[in-house]
Write a protein that binds this DNA or RNA. Structure first.
Lengths: 192, 192
DNA sequence: GTCTATAGCTAGATAGAC
DNA sequence: GTCTATCTAGCTATAGAC
């Protein structure tokens, strides 16, 4: 646990992220966070006066994480299949351990109840991610590692949606769903 | 509105289903339903003593709907592409109008907070749906309307996950996501 | 920065009259 | 079958002491 090296504010965001991925934003309380950190609700309010503020902080944390990881992957000299693998097995599966889903999927489903500020962040984060995958797929097609039909940004939508959906299904039905979806995606990207 | 022809219990389930698809099970209250039907919370409790009972009723309603529609489609003499089209445009898009997602997707995301009885129902409903799509895909392959690689039940997972995920994304990003995902799925099923 | 205490609200749920 | 009234518990949020 590197938790002890982080300041309180970062610890709160870390615990909140976990709760977002397991229970959803409208479905965890300041008390849940307080209990895990052995402090009181009032202390959380000191750092994030309103829950909406915490929600925006969660979005910013995802944003920073995307910027860092996507940048690192895109500027590397790896092949497109390798880049996709880092995204899937290094990012998605690392962030979404047992019984967790992608935090963006979690926010999407609660979108009707979310404050406006969070909805705007969510949309931008999704678009950012889709654009990243589209770039990787385009590289793969250009270098003949991938051989899918149609535009890279159309294919990117299918790939991202399938990966996120597979995480949702896996929580209910077991990990084999993710494995099989991955295999299908590989097959359709290589197309032979 | 055929609402007036239904009894109160059915009306409650109908309103609850809409709220499930827009806000999620843990995110609507008996008061929300009561207001829409112009009755009181206590009246809802008369029909469904606990919210868990209402949740199970929602699962049963989805089950009945599946049984009826899947049976009608499977026993028809239509081609596999036609059957898939009825499922997508007749069922999914009918049930999931503007700003609604599939009720099963909604339950999946809240699964950590759901009562055990609902979790069991949810899993069975998902499996039922996957098996139905697998049957349609298998028919399509046998009749050479579809030409995907691999097992029908593996491909079914990808198709269902992509459709449900596209509905989630469409609510945040607009209907074009669903259109493009549909087009990609068609292409990968026909595979040429 | 963390605490106790509490306000104000809404949730699910129950009792009992009509 | 629907109502009013009420209970308990949980939530977000604030005030003020340390």
């Amino acid at each position: 646990m590197q938790t002890r090296l982080k300041n309180r504010k970062e610890q709160i965001v870390e615990v909140a992220m976990d709760l977002l991925q397991t229970h959803g934003f409208e479905n965890f309380s300041y008390l849940d966070i307080a209990n895990q950190l052995s402090i009181t609700k009032a202390s959380i309010h000191h750092h994030f006066a309103k829950k909406e503020d915490l929600g925006v902080a969660l979005c910013r944390a995802i944003h920073d994480w995307h910027r860092q990881e996507f940048g690192k992957i895109l500027t590397s000299n790896k092949s497109a299949p390798e880049k996709l693998d880092i995204y899937i097995n290094g990012m998605l599966r690392f962030a979404c351990g047992k019984n967790k889903i992608c935090p963006l999927s979690s926010l999407q489903v609660d979108v009707a109840s979310l404050p406006e500020a969070m909805r705007i962040e969510l949309k931008a984060l999704d678009e950012h991610e889709l654009e990243f995958i589209a770039q990787v797929l385009a590289q793969g097609k250009q270098e003949s590692d991938f051989n899918f039909v149609g535009e890279a940004n159309h294919q990117a939508i299918l790939v991202v949606i399938a990966l996120k959906g597979a995480l949702q299904y896996s929580r209910v039905h077991g990990d084999y769903i993710f494995e099989q979806t991955m295999a299908q995606i590989n097959q359709l990207l290589v197309n032979k």
